[in-house]
């Protein structure tokens, strides 16, 4: 039985006000259960990234509810949302977003250390997470000394370290070549399958969406439809 990890109800996000108001999201509902990977697709400006940032507590919705692991982000303080991001939510961005001043292991252990864990203990978790994404040997390397694929793996390791319940990935393969991109998506899929994490993947590429259990479509801030799993990725690769 799956548990709902992310429950978005009637989510709206309006930028600006009056005549200049821009409705990025208009009453979006979305639920993602544990072990489920949901892909969000849609054209540019459809509200995909806004949906993700609201789900991750990085942006404040104008209306509706965003419930993560039973916590309504809209009612929590900034510090409480930050605590959720440290403990429950992992974020993967398109352009890697590693802190250049920290090594790979330190980047990965950052949420744990910010949460008060001792550096040595946090490093063990970080090394384990780097092992899971198959780059344990890069633990002491700085982002500037890594390739794009390696950086994204580190970013994924940071998103999964500890006891994460929700993994949000915004175009995680956008800056990668296709082979590396596939490998990264495989990692996300495995994480959901093996650890029961709920995943939301924003992408505009159907081949990438094929890794998801479900695909939802956004247009002009409105959820216009959803489908079951697309054909397997290797099938898609063979047919295209």
């Amino acid at each position: 039985m799956t548990t709902t990890i992310l429950d978005i109800r009637n989510l709206t996000r309006v930028h600006g006000s009056g005549e200049q108001a821009v409705h990025a999201l208009r009453g979006v509902d979305l639920s993602v259960g544990s072990g489920e990977l949901v892909a969000v697709m849609g054209p540019s400006g459809s509200g995909k990234s806004t949906l993700l940032t609201c789900a991750g507590g990085l942006d404040q919705p104008s209306g509706g509810e965003v419930i993560v692991d039973g916590n309504d982000l809209t009612t929590l303080s900034r510090n409480a949302v930050a605590a959720l991001r440290r403990r429950r939510i992992g974020y993967v961005f398109q352009d890697f977003n590693l802190i250049p001043a920290l090594t790979a292991a330190e980047n990965v252990s950052l949420p744990l250390e910010l949460d008060g864990m001792r550096a040595r203990a946090a490093r063990k978790y970080a090394e384990a997470a780097l092992g899971e994404v198959a780059i344990p040997e890069l633990a002491d390397r700085f982002p500037d000394d890594m390739s794009g694929g390696q950086r994204q793996r580190v970013a994924i390791a940071r998103a999964i370290v500890g006891e994460r319940r929700l993994l949000l990935a915004d175009e995680p393969t956008g800056a990668l070549d296709s082979d590396t991109g596939e490998a990264v998506l495989q990692l996300l899929r495995d994480r959901c399958d093996q650890h029961g994490i709920a995943g939301v993947l924003v992408t505009h590429d159907a081949r990438h969406a094929a890794w998801a259990d479900r695909v939802v479509y956004l247009r002009d801030g409105v959820l216009v439809g959803q489908s079951g799993p697309l054909p397997e990725a290797d099938v898609l690769l063979e047919t295209h």
Binding site: G56, L58, R78, A82, A83, L98, L110
Partner: peptide, 12 residues
């Protein structure tokens, strides 16, 4: 960079 710290769960 500071935004990344926030995204990783850092507080103000």
């Amino acid at each position: 960079e500071l935004g990344l710290v926030t995204a990783a769960g850092g507080t103000p």
